[in-house]
Design a protein around this nucleic acid. Structure first.
Length: 455
RNA sequence: GUGGCUGUAGCUCAAUGGCAGAGCGCCUGACUGUGGAUCAGGAAGUUGUGGGUUCGAGCCCCAUCAGCCACCCCA
């Protein structure tokens, strides 16, 4: 290594995505984008950098995670921390040119100076879908349907979207008599599954809630256990009307949740993919209505997505309330779960579909002609760069790279007007036998399409 | 941000303070038209980096960089 050469390394919490990983990432992003556009959402991108004051004061204690610095023009700037605040800025800036309800999706990296762990990075992609400018429960229900269709198309089977409402949690706090400490109830309740009943009560007491109030809150929350199908969600809502009779915010929350849940079958969301869960709180404090969270039942991991209604945040750059509901897909974790649980069947490791071997220099022109025909037919094709390196070496390269199909044309085939299609499996299989067929040279494109199952 | 664990070949890991190794992978050949199997050979390392202790450091000490775990918080 020459003197002074800089060590090749990535910054803490930052990653490279090599081609095999990119194939999966692009597959996931492409699948979700397709679902969003089917529902009429439009793409949006915003800059990495924002004025620091645009971002400051929006994230509470977590503001310490904000990347901030002074740029070359002495401006105080910050790196995008999420996609929600930039959305609010865009709405404020273009309020007169956007068509409302404004439906946008945004898939871009965000940056947080957090301490990294597995599934936790300083640069990671967020994938947000939001509907800005309507209070309709149809918009809330559509978010749940986006989760259903998105995860369905990715091949997920064992997952559920948990539903709740911030208004119900507020009502539970009032009902329990937690008074000023109502807020600290949320976070404790959210951990019920993790720390158990006594753990939750302990956290509430630590947060200044009385024992009696904690018990009353827990008793209400436990009513959402044992759900079998949608009728139990609706029964639970009906049962809560009595204790919340004198709590207007509770009744409002029940009405909204009921309207949303009743719409789900009409959106085509099957019963088993959602559930009303009174323990769901969500960490962010800007939610004002419905909240959702997608949990995997295959793998123990944090949520695969979450969202909800936040009617006050998006209008903060516009000087008025703009009702908004949104859903976020946890791209990095979705990818982790797909890899770990092998969801959706095997994916290729490369975007190359066909490898054209070159038998020798004399056959090069013919190989390039085949390559050109395949490319013109929309097939990702690469050709060997060393005509005289031999079939062995060329096929080994194709196998190592993960290309599933090779084309071989030697003098014998050429004389008969044929070529060979050789399928290439994953290496390491001792019992694998070569699988190759001969096709007519003038039918090569059609034959390759059949092999690749392309239309 | 708090507390802890770990960094040795491309990968997974060995090596009482005393000569840096194995398996897999990679490259070459046996195999004269076909990756994977078998056999033979080969390349590959400033032990993350920088200091210190020691006759001697992969091993002990300090710092630093990075990964991981539990909190916190979240995606």
């Amino acid at each position: 290594m020459p003197d002074g050469q800089i060590k090749a390394q990535t910054l803490k919490g930052f990653r490279d995505f090599l081609p095999a990983q990119m194939v999966l990432r692009q597959h996931v992003i492409g699948t979700l984008r397709h679902v969003f556009e089917q529902h009429g959402f439009e793409p949006l991108e915003t800059p990495v950098l924002e004025y620091a004051e645009t971002l400051e004061g929006k994230y509470g204690d977590d503001e310490r995670l904000l990347y901030r610095f002074t740029d070359h023009g002495d401006r105080r700037v910050g790196m995008r921390y999420d996609l929600t605040v930039p959305l609010a800025r865009v709405v404020g800036q273009y309020v007169n040119t956007l068509a409302f309800p404004f439906k946008r999706y945004q898939i871009q990296p965000v940056w947080r100076a957090d301490r990294p762990q597995k599934g936790r990075y300083r640069e990671f992609y967020q994938c947000d879908v939001d509907i800005v400018g309507t209070s309709s429960p149809l918009a809330d229900a559509e978010c749940v349907s986006l989760y259903y269709e998105g995860f369905r198309d990715l091949g997920f089977v064992n997952y559920q979207t948990l539903l709740n409402s911030r208004k119900l949690l507020t009502a539970i706090g009032i009902y329990a008599g937690a008074g000023e400490q109502a807020g600290s109830i949320f976070r404790a309740i959210d951990k019920l599954a993790k720390v158990g009943e006594t753990g939750v009560i302990g956290e509430m007491i630590a947060g200044g809630v009385s024992i009696e109030a904690s018990r009353r809150a827990i008793d209400i929350v436990k009513m959402s256990q044992g759900r079998r199908d949608q009728s139990d969600d609706l029964k639970l809502i009906a049962n809560l009307r009595q204790p919340f009779a004198d709590i207007p915010v509770g009744i409002a929350g029940l009405d909204e949740l009921e309207a949303m849940i009743k719409l789900l079958p009409d959106f085509g969301v099957p019963d088993r993919y959602y559930k009303l869960d009174l323990t769901l709180a969500r960490g962010l404090n800007y939610y004002t209505g419905a909240v959702f969270e997608v949990v995997s039942q295959d793998i123990q991991i944090g949520s695969l997505g979450g969202g909800g209604r936040y009617d006050e945040l998006v209008g903060m750059f516009s000087g008025r309330s703009i009702p908004t509901v949104g859903a976020s897909f946890g791209l990095e974790r979705i990818i982790d779960v797909i890899e770990e649980a092998k969801i959706g069947g095997p994916l290729p490791r490369t975007t190359s579909e066909v490898f054209v071997t070159v038998f020798n220099s004399a056959m090069l022109a013919s190989a390039l002609a085949i390559t050109g025909e395949l490319r013109a037919a929309g097939i990702n094709t690469e050709v060997a760069y060393e005509p005289d390196s031999g079939l062995k070496k060329q096929l080994r390269y194709a196998g190592n790279k993960g290309i599933s199909l090779a084309i071989i044309e030697g003098p014998d085939e050429q004389a008969k007007g044929e070529v060979m299609l050789r399928e290439i499996g994953e290496s390491g299989d001792k019992d694998a036998i070569p699988n190759q067929t001969t096709v007519r040279r003038d039918e090569i494109v059609a034959a390759v399409k059949v092999r690749l199952a392309k239309p």
